Amino acid sequence: MSVTKIPGPGANVAICRKARGFSQVALARRAGVSVSLLSKIEVGDRALTQGIAAALAQAMGLTLDELLGMPPSSAPTRTALPPSTTPFGGSTSPTRRRHTPRTFLASWPS
C-alpha cells in the first residue's frame, strides 16, 4: 500500500515563495514576520494562522486560495446592486429626508 503525502499549508508557502523568486528573508520582511517563523511554517513546525497567511499572500500578490494551493472557486461571481437601490427597496440617494433634532422632536408623541 502506497501512502501519498499531501503537502501542508507551509509547503505551499515555500512553493509559492520559490516560484516568485523570493528568499525567506525578503518575504519575511515584506510580510512583517520573522525569518525564523517563516522557516518554521514552511517545514511544518509552526501552524499557519489566518493573519500570517493573509500577510504572506499579500506580500506575494496572491489570494489566500492560491497561497494554500486550493483550486479556484467555482462559485458564481457576485454583482453589485445598482447604486439607486438597496436590498430592502429603499433609496440610497442623498435627497432622502433625514431627521434633524428639531424635526425628530416635533414628530415625538407628547
Results as ranks from 00 to 15, higher is better:
L38M: 03
A57F: 01
A55L: 08
E42M: 09
A28V: 07
Q50F: 08
G32P: 04
I52N: 09
L38N: 08
A19Y: 12
A55W: 09
L27A: 03
Q50K: 08
V43G: 02
G51H: 11
A28M: 02
L27W: 01
E42G: 07
G21F: 13
M60S: 06
L48H: 12
I41R: 05
S36C: 01
L27V: 02
M60R: 05
F22N: 03
E42T: 11
D45H: 07
S23R: 02
A28Q: 06
A53F: 02
R20F: 12
A31S: 14
A19L: 15
G44L: 05
L38H: 11
A47C: 03
G21M: 07
V35H: 12
Q24N: 04
R20E: 04
S23V: 01
Q58C: 08
A59Q: 03
F22D: 12
V35I: 15
R30M: 12
V33S: 09
M60A: 11
R46Y: 09
L27F: 01
A31K: 09
V35A: 10
M60Q: 15
G32L: 03
A57S: 07
R29F: 15
A31H: 09
K40Q: 14
A31W: 10
A47E: 12
R29T: 13
A57G: 11
V25G: 02
I41H: 08
R30T: 08
R29P: 07
I41A: 09
A19V: 13
A26H: 05
A47M: 06
D45L: 08
A19C: 14
V25M: 09
G44P: 06
F22Y: 14
L48A: 11
V25P: 04
G32A: 01
Q24A: 10
G44I: 10
R29Y: 11
A54F: 00
L38I: 07
L27E: 04
S23F: 02
R46W: 00
S23L: 03
M60I: 04
T49V: 01
A19S: 15
Q24C: 00
Q58L: 07
R46T: 13
A54P: 00
A59V: 06
R30H: 15
A57I: 07
Q50Y: 06
R20T: 06
G21R: 07
G21Q: 10
G51D: 15
A47F: 05
A31F: 13
A53E: 02
V25N: 12
V25T: 05
V35R: 11
A53R: 05
V43Y: 03
A55P: 00
L56N: 06
E42Q: 11
I41T: 03
S23Q: 04
A31Y: 05
L56D: 13
G21Y: 07
S36I: 04
A31R: 10
G51A: 15
Q58I: 08
I52F: 02
L38Y: 10
F22L: 10
L48Q: 11
V43E: 00
A53P: 01
V43N: 03
S36A: 14
I52L: 03
V35Q: 14
L37V: 01
V35K: 13
V35L: 10
T49C: 04
A59R: 01
A31D: 13
A54L: 06
